[in-house]
Amino acid sequence: MTGPFLLLHETDNVLVARQTAPKGLEVTLEGRTLTLSRLIPLAHKIARHDIEEGDKILKYGMPIGVATQAIAAGEHVHVHNIRSDYTPTHALQDADGVSAGVAQ
């Protein structure tokens, strides 16, 4: 059971939060039960399984960028650990969806 997380395509290595998921929530991913290490706001992504540095990130079954570091299953997947294959992303300090109180 992936709880509030949605798998958009069977080949994806990320899941999308369909509601804000609190820190500490237990999530079962591919048979392993993990605990979220931080709050995951609505529509943000977590790793479905362990991702290696340089791996393509797949959402909708299509690449949305590349991992800039190893990402463990259940970790937040976002601007801090993936980058575009096209043009760089412009983000502010509230990019995590939490720090400025957004999505809460």
Partner: peptide
Amino acid sequence: NAAGGLSTIEE
């Protein structure tokens, strides 16, 4: 867009 969970232009 990033605060709302989008990480890259292709996403």
